[in-house]
Design a protein around this nucleic acid. Sequence first.
DNA 1: ATGTAATAGTTGAAAATGTAACTAACAAGC
DNA 2: GCTTGTTAGTTACATTTTCAACTATTACAT
Lengths: 143, 143
Amino acid sequence: MSSFDLEQFLPYLLNQAAEASSLEFQQVYKDRYGMLRNEWRVLFHLGQFGRMTASEIGARARLHKTKISRAVAKLEARRFLIRKRDEDDRRVEHLHLTPTGRAAFEDLRRVAERYDSELTAGMTVSEIAQLRAQLEHLAQRRG
Amino acid sequence: MSSFDLEQFLPYLLNQAAEASSLEFQQVYKDRYGMLRNEWRVLFHLGQFGRMTASEIGARARLHKTKISRAVAKLEARRFLIRKRDEDDRRVEHLHLTPTGRAAFEDLRRVAERYDSELTAGMTVSEIAQLRAQLEHLAQRRG
DNA sequence: ATGTAATAGTTGAAAATGTAACTAACAAGC
DNA sequence: GCTTGTTAGTTACATTTTCAACTATTACAT
């Protein structure tokens, strides 16, 4: 007789928590800016880190280059970012937000901040810190 | 100046952890049984809870009925489960695993158990319990 | 009993994703 | 110079997912 419980299985639990906790925020960037998940991720990376290349975003966010490529194309079409060829290595494109893109980022950043505090309401500061540390540790794992 | 950090944003962190922690297990059910995510989820619900209807699985796993419908069709085609019409309410189908399906479940359950202990290696029992409790709490949230 | 609404589950078309092949540019060896 | 290999990013095609419409059955109100 095994004690295995699907609903205690960490990958399952993590997925349930991730989906549930993404829903409301997803609604905002979707409704307000017609963005998809990969698009807000790219937007946030550029908003937070400034000018980056697609590869750099991919490495940080662990997104496949095709996802980035398409997200960048969409964001560019909406005038949220512009590309600039690197003069030394003409394969590379530097991406950065336009004022419009930055405004969207600032808006969504505020929403995210507020939402994050809602999610952590009821937890103590040290509980939150520990949760984040454990999630970071799990996220480190390489498939 | 804001202190917002994308990589500390809980929905982002949860998604990163969920994806990373699902990778290896996904590889197993995919390689070994050609299953997709929704298929192993349905398989596991039937394996763990016995006979269930599609709606019951959907409510528990928070999967949309079209995902269930297609996962069930695939599992049925591979002879992992069979359907039985409810005699009192002929809209309802009761699903349960075949011996083949149960064998696949038992096999994957063992893999999942082992994998779960790998993931939690390095954490104390109480840390693990707390992590699970926090994830359950976050998963509760309704969008 | 008859009309209306609700529920279980399926299906088709559109959108998104994954995988692999592709172009273009650079790098390194000879 | 030329060949071979690598990296940045795009594109094409197959698979999945999403969304809305659909069938069939039950429930409920009049």
